[in-house]
Design a protein around this nucleic acid. Structure first.
Length: 460
RNA sequence: GGCUAGGUGGCAGAGUGGUGAUGCAGCGGCCUGCAAAGCCGUCAAUACCGGUUCGAUUCCGGUCCUAGCCUCCA
């Protein structure tokens, strides 16, 4: 089976055929670094991380670019309100983003370009758009002239008439067309500025992605991804800029967009005060559980985050690690090979990244462990579970470590108490044995007796 | 107002023109000194109304409802 992708521009699933199977290219819009990453920032990172792993598995060589937007008025505002420099703001939140994503098991992309490092290229692309007749200068601004691109609106399914009808009342007077958008704008005293043929200023909101894609991946890429909210205007505008700068050459062969994360049936927003920060969720559960939750819903569907979903994910992972623990006696190679990949699992992922169906296949494999007894069969199952887990970015920990958690615990004390309890049990002093068990429970430790009389423990 | 996506068991969540996955929770049992975990078994759903069809949850139309976009936003 080949990979199928729901292509936003075609509005249906299509077979994924890269332009060059030896060099698959993907660009995903990364964060604007002005605040702490929230769960909505994490969703595309995790979703496209799994897709990246899938592409690597299928094609071997993938160039995955995810940018850092470090030029933005929101960053300027954060610098003012926090009383530190713009550079300090973007450095701080870039670092937090990297830490949070690592905690969620997100692999670094092949390339992570920053807007500030691409000013000459941005200015160059704007110049070319002016020369080509798609952009014009007006009062220190450079604007993209939307009517010059006849396919404008095709990606987002809008037509120009609608856009004009819905346009804001306060359209800048120097715009030739109400729908025209900014490529370059002049900077005031306290705003970051770069020299350009149009005066000191800064780039508009969309040109940066077009430029970085051209710079690092070329004129045509295989996949462009991001959140659904970026379809319009961000990706529509990118598409217009890049296509026109390249004289009509196809920009992206496939467009993929992930759905939003809602919180208790409401949109996450500052005004509702319900923004879930990744760092706060990591206090409640493991990064792996957060990741598992994000993969538990198909990437195009909205994901409603409630108090329950994280718990359910932790339980699901408990169950899978439980099974791996049962297979502790089976040795497998550290590096699982392609033949170990379970077919039904892969078919689910290849079908437009159907991670919920893939996880269901993982559970089916786990169940089989109970009905299979030969060493060879158990070894195959363990390989399959680990290989599948690797694509999803889960199940790679030692099961014992998973159940013991990351919190600091005094293992010696626990073992001493378990020993005391064992001798109490031996003397059939069950009252004493239960006291010790309750004592451990108060410490957050759950005792588990084995059939042979010995006991193990895990984090409650 | 315009555009888009969706309404599946108590919860989460896939798929499918013809016996409706998977996990959690519940219930029964096994195991256990008692538990916990585990194992086995089990209950339970396709918003509503029409249409097409031998047959629709799946296709078409309508109603109601939900979410998103149209403005910064992952």
């Amino acid at each position: 089976m080949t990979i199928q992708i729901y292509n936003t521009v075609a509005r249906r699933k299509e077979e994924f055929i890269p332009a060059d199977p030896k060099r698959v290219t993907m660009y995903v819009c990364g964060p604007t670094v002005y605040s702490f990453p929230h769960i909505g920032n994490a969703r595309p990172a995790v979703v496209f991380d799994v897709f990246y792993r899938l592409l690597m598995h299928e094609f071997g060589h993938v160039i995955y670019v995810r940018n850092i937007t470090d030029v933005d008025d929101k960053i300027n505002a954060a610098a003012v309100s926090e009383g530190i420099s713009i550079g300090q703001i973007s450095a701080r939140y870039t670092r937090t983003y990297h830490q949070n994503m690592a905690d969620l098991g997100v692999l670094p992309p092949s390339i992570e370009p920053k807007v500030t490092e691409h000013m000459p290229q941005i200015i160059d692309m704007i110049k070319r758009l002016i020369v080509a007749g798609n952009a014009y200068e007006a009062e220190g601004h450079v604007l993209f002239h939307v009517p010059s691109y006849h396919e404008y609106g095709v990606l987002s399914g809008r037509n120009l008439k609608e856009l004009i009808a819905g346009a804001r009342v306060d359209v800048a007077p120097f715009k030739k067309d109400d729908a025209d958008f900014v490529l370059w704008k002049p900077s005031g005293e306290d705003q970051p500025a770069w020299d350009s043929p149009w005066g000191a200023g800064r780039p508009g909101w969309h040109i940066e992605c077009s430029t970085m894609i051209e710079q690092h991946l070329g004129e045509t890429i295989d996949i462009h991804g991001g959140g659904q909210d970026l379809i319009f205007p961000h990706h529509e505008n990118e598409r217009a800029q890049s296509t026109c700068a390249h004289h009509g050459k196809l920009f992206s062969r496939y467009w993929m967009h992930n759905g939003f994360v809602n919180v208790n049936h409401e949109k996450m927003s500052k005004s509702l005060g319900n923004i879930l920060l990744v760092q706060d969720l990591l206090e409640q559960a493991s990064g792996e559980a957060v990741r598992f939750t994000l993969l538990g819903t198909h990437y195009r569907s909205p994901l409603d985050w409630t108090d329950q979903v994280l718990n359910q994910s932790s339980r699901n992972l408990d169950r899978l690690y439980e099974v791996l623990q049962k297979l502790d006696d089976v040795d497998v190679d550290v590096d699982v090979s392609a033949e170990d990949m379970p077919v039904a699992f892969m078919d689910a992922l290849k079908d437009d990244l159907n991670t919920p169906a893939a996880i269901a296949e993982l559970h089916k494999l786990a169940k089989q462990v109970n009905t299979v007894f030969s060493h060879d069969s158990r070894q195959v199952l363990k390989k399959q579970l680990l290989a599948a887990g690797k694509i999803l970015g889960i199940l790679q920990q030692d099961p014992a470590a998973w159940f013991r958690g990351t919190n600091e615990i005094d293992e010696m004390e626990i073992l001493a108490l378990l020993e005391q309890r064992a001798s109490a049990k031996n003397e059939r002093d069950f009252k004493r044995a239960d006291e010790i068990r309750n004592q451990l429970k108060a410490m957050g430790i759950q005792v588990q007796d084995r059939p042979d009389g010995t006991s193990s423990w895990r984090k409650a």
